[in-house]
Amino acid sequence: MNNVPLVQILFVSTGLFFIGMYGLFSRRNLITILMSIELMLNSVNINFVAFNKYLYTTQLNGVIFTIFIITIAAAEAAVAIAIIINLYRSHHSIDVEDAGELKY
């Protein structure tokens, strides 16, 4: 395993991050947007684990942090889905363009 260099792992995580960002900016469906956000979170997780493994071999901080992020992400997904369900009930749609009341 050790022969995979750090840079390559970073490339993967950066790619994941920007794919997520693209999804966040371009998709209209809220579920898809939620999935994009999860992608971005996971790219960060990869970074944490990778840096922990290559730079601070004696410590476990990065790994622990990742576990926290996964937990938070699960909670966040629950909240987000609850929001989406309520939005659907009130607007009969989960398209972000349809929920634009909060403006000037």
Binding site: M21, L24, F25, S26, I33, V96, E97, A99, G100, E101, L102, K103, Y104
Partner: peptide, 17 residues
């Protein structure tokens, strides 16, 4: 400056990033 408050979620995300 009220034009910024467009009500479009993804615009806000762009400003944020």
């Amino acid at each position: 400056i009220k034009g910024f408050q467009s009500g479009k979620l993804q615009n806000y995300a762009v400003y944020f990033f």
